[in-house]
Design a protein around this nucleic acid. Structure first.
Length: 849
RNA sequence: GGGCGCUUAGCUCAGCUGGAAGAGCGUCGCCCUUACAAGGCGAAGGUCGGGGGUUCGAGCCCCUCAGCGCCCACCA
């Protein structure tokens, strides 16, 4: 026994953090079988910048389950990954170092970012290889900082099991996964209209798109009819796409336009003859009921373009600016090509906004505008990280067949156990709303390259229909460095030779394989067999449609199974005013600052008191409550463990009653934890604990000092230690530092490797009756209350307590009489049978104090 | 437009299969009590969003309305 005189929370993190690392408390034992293992698909945090307080919350939630499972005797596989692959990192590197990637530059082996000169403050172009080096360098620094924070938080991660999403194992798994989809015909390349971000200059997938309400204007534009009838008026918010107009469309049931269908009209300014067509997607209620179809203004245009087999006239370039006119060329008919091209010259090079402003002026001058523009607010699609609306641009991309699997993926979603259950609905609504195959290629640099080359024909043109892929054994491969099978690098770029696919994969193409990557898919089949499918995917709700969905999708395709059986979905952390935290609002609470002000157990307490699936506000008061609880555990433990412990059994009814009550708490706490209701577990344990210190400790204190002889003391101290032993283990997942500290005073090994309490181990409480504990605590509370109301010290004697209650409850109270009198300085207790329970307290007159 | 969640004390939230309204914080008051004053004890405070209904009995079940938040949607 080694109890300090003045227990304190100071320094616990450092001491036990080091001890856990040195002793390997959380090291995973890979000799265990699948049945003995609880495996967690830890979210790899984005290694760019600083961690969010929401991460602190949700990673704590995961750690609670990890610790609970470990204490239940499961071998917990709890790895850590770093998501350093992707656009977030690229952006951060660009800003941090003031560079931009220019893939046309050769690799500079002597490149040193420290000596970088930045005239005019413009980003300095660097080669792809140098850029990737910078990405790796910056993410390594971030990952170190993240690890330190997570260690401080007390995550019971096995830090020897880490991966990065740009590491060799991740690249190998991503490329292997791609190749297998490719060989099955599930991954295909196509030159097709795709959502495109004009700033990042890359394709984006449906899952990365979000709607934003922005200001716009409806312009009413008149098209002349070729037959000379009244002009046809349409409304558009994007008049700059007029040169890309390929048809007008009305609903086939719309009587106003039925006679026009099949006729030809001329686009204003450009005088391009376009047909009037009919399609049921045209909404008679919108605008004038007839719309222009452009290639491409939005995804509806794509639908119409496909369904109606319309021609293609693209005017928006990949950087978002308009192209010069090509009227007069094949496919670019115009009744006045020279004028059309002159108009285009006014617009060429301008972005959408500027081109819009100019074309409205031109339309006005030409008399084609009807009325004043109508100001509107309307939802427009944006890339989730982007600043300008997405364009729809045709380009060659890799896709994974997704739409064919909608029903199967809905079934997989039902197969999962969702915590909370209603989160399953979000998944389902996403899957039901899928409308495009997954675009997995990105025109970026810091990512996993496609393991693909294309042969060049005699004219040096790539044959995209004949992609060359490597053997799985050669992965990972970078087609920009390596030559494909049957070629040598001298043939790169030459007619008859080859080129490498320049694109990288969507970051989710890698992240969707985190269970496989962490479990050693194909690289370590033995380990994989012990871990996959995993047990738990913890994550936040904002990435259900991306990370969760894609992971389910990949496991379905590759393993014909779910990737895990349970999904635990955390909510968000809001600022103290319940507003979403965001950098632009300046209300972000930085985790490192929180840890400067509060100890780790206290922060965990706050996180643990939030349920899964519901947003929680950052509440420093609640953190302080956690700190108080931790201090209380120290002090109460000190009291329990410094009592002399004479030989003897636990025999006193009050002691047995307390333990019987605790047994019920163990049952309730365990059931809640099994149901992923960690907040409820904490609540019932904490509630019992405060009663334990306020009531039970006070009740038996005199007895522990020997007031009623050695047998009475032995019973009390025995019960106190039994309860403390159980309570420390119940608190261990929540407050790992303080429980470890107390455990070290009197127990061998780690509380975190001890077993989770069971009702069965409290068999000693079999003779106990929880109600005895309850009535005794109530009576003591009544005495305390009267003394507080009388504004006197708790030491003031009580002449008489009159307890009125049902006979059987009074009988139970009698069992605690001696302890009660000692704790309350009560001289006599009178019992009266009554149907109306009450406790009357007669204090001694003041002069007696 | 469709879906989900929420609405209980000033604040943050519990209230399990319907059985006499709860906790913490904040406020106020009291107490140096040999585990704990960077403590402890106690008090005040609620027409459980509105309106119907089922029931002996509704915070909980059903219908309906409203507000807030989120997800999804082909948004010309």
């Amino acid at each position: 026994m080694n109890v300090p005189d003045k227990p304190s929370l100071e320094g616990l993190e450092a001491r036990w953090g080091e001890w856990w690392e040195a002793s390997g408390t959380y090291r995973f034992d890979r000799t265990k079988t699948r049945e003995q293992i609880f495996s967690i698909d830890t979210p790899p945090p984005t290694a760019s910048g600083s961690l969010h307080l929401g991460s602190v919350e949700s990673y704590t939630h995961t750690d609670l389950m990890a610790r609970f499972q470990r204490m239940r005797g499961n071998e917990v596989f709890y790895p850590m990954g770093w998501d350093d692959n992707g656009l977030a990192t690229e952006r951060r590197v660009q800003n941090y170092f003031g560079v931009r990637c220019d893939p046309s530059l050769p690799h500079d082996p002597h490149f040193d970012v420290a000596t970088l000169e930045r005239p005019d403050d413009d980003p300095v172009p660097v080669s792809r290889a140098n850029f990737i080096d910078l990405c790796a360098r910056l993410t390594a620094e971030d990952e170190k900082a993240f690890e330190n924070l997570f260690r401080l938080l007390g995550l019971s991660v096995d830090w020897s099991h880490t991966y990065t999403t740009i590491g060799a194992a991740s690249r190998r798994a991503s490329q292997r996964g791609f190749l297998r989809l490719f060989h099955r015909g599930l991954a295909y390349t196509a030159d097709a209209p795709t959502m495109w971000d004009v700033d990042f200059k890359t394709a984006v997938a449906q899952a990365e798109i979000e709607d934003r309400e922005i200001d716009g204007e409806y312009h009413r534009v008149a098209f002349d009819r070729e037959d000379g009838g009244d002009p046809v008026e349409i409304e558009t918010s994007r008049p700059e796409l007029l040169p890309a107009c390929v048809a007008l469309v009305a609903n086939p049931t719309d009587a106003r336009y039925r006679s026009l269908v099949g006729s030809t009209v001329l686009t204003p300014l450009f005088r391009v003859p376009v047909p009037v067509v009919a399609h049921e997607l045209a909404d008679p209620e919108k605008g004038t009921g007839i719309a222009m179809i452009c290639t491409f203004g939005d995804v509806t245009d794509v639908t119409w373009w496909r369904a109606l087999r319309l021609p293609t006239r693209v005017v928006v370039r990949r950087d978002g600016t308009l192209a010069p006119g090509r009227f007069g060329e094949p496919g670019w008919d115009s009744r006045d090509a020279a004028a059309a091209n002159a108009t285009m010259a006014e617009l060429a090079g301008k972005g959408a906004k500027q081109a819009r402003r100019r074309i409205v002026e031109l339309l006005g001058d030409a008399g084609s505008l009807r009325g004043a523009p109508e100001k509107i607010r309307h939802p427009v699609k944006f890339y989730e990280n982007g600043d300008r609306p997405l364009e729809v641009i045709a380009s060659r991309q890799w896709f994974v067949k997704t739409l064919d699997f909608r029903d199967a993926l809905l079934a997989r979603g039902r197969e999962l156990r969702w915590h909370p259950a209603f989160m399953g609905a979000r998944y389902a609504s996403w899957v039901e709303g899928l409308n495009q195959d997954w675009a997995i290629s990105r025109q970026r640099y810091f990512g996993v390259p496609f393991p693909v080359w294309y042969p060049l024909d005699g004219a040096g043109e790539p044959r995209y229909d004949q992609p060359i892929v490597p053997d799985e054994a050669s992965l990972p491969v970078d087609p920009q460095d390596a030559a494909p099978p049957g070629f040598s690098n001298e043939q790169r770029g030459l007619p008859g030779g080859f080129i490498g696919d320049p694109d990288v994969m969507d970051t989710w193409a890698t992240s969707s394989l985190t269970p496989q990557i962490a479990a050693g898919w194909e690289d370590d089949p033995d380990l994989f067999g012990r871990l996959f499918p995993m047990d738990l995917r913890p994550q936040a709700h904002d990435i259900i449609r991306t990370w969760l969905f894609y992971t389910v999708f990949r496991a379905h395709l590759e393993h014909d199974s779910v990737p895990w059986t349970d999904a635990a979905i955390s909510g968000f952390v809001l600022d103290p005013d319940r507003k979403k935290m965001s950098k632009s609002k300046g209300n972000v609470v930085v985790p490192t600052e929180v840890f400067e002000r509060h100890n780790a157990d206290a922060v965990r307490y706050w996180a643990a008191s939030a349920r899964l699936g519901y947003d929680a506000a950052i509440d420093e008061q609640q953190i302080k409550v956690g700190r108080r609880l931790a201090i209380k555990i120290l002090n109460a433990s000190k009291f329990v463990l410094t009592m002399e412990s004479p030989a003897g059994d636990i025999t006193e009814p009050v002691d047995l009653a307390m333990l019987a009550t605790l047994r019920g708490v163990v049952h309730e706490a365990t059931t809640a934890f099994e149901d992923y209701e960690h907040a409820k577990t904490l609540d019932v344990v904490e509630r019992f604990f405060w009663g334990f210190t306020d009531d039970y400790l006070e009740l038996v204190k005199q007895r522990t000092y020997g007031a009623r002889g050695p047998a009475g003391a032995a019973s009390a101290v025995g019960a106190l230690r039994e309860a403390l032993d159980v309570l420390l283990r119940l608190f261990a997942p929540f407050l790992p530092y303080v429980t470890k500290e107390v455990w070290s005073w009197w127990r061998e090994g780690s509380v975190h490797r001890s077993h989770w309490p069971t009702p069965g181990e409290l068999a000693v409480a079999d003779g106990g009756d929880p109600e005895t504990y309850e009535v005794a605590a109530q009576a003591l509370g009544a005495v305390r209350k009267q003394k507080a109301l009388a504004k006197v010290s708790l030491k003031v004697p009580v002449l008489r307590v009159t307890a009125r209650d049902a006979a059987e409850r009074l009988a139970k109270l009698r069992l605690a009489e001696a302890d009660l009198c000692g704790a309350g300085s009560i001289q006599a207790i009178v019992y009266e049978d009554s149907a109306e329970p009450s406790i009357e307290v007669e204090l001694a007159p003041r002069e007696q104090t």
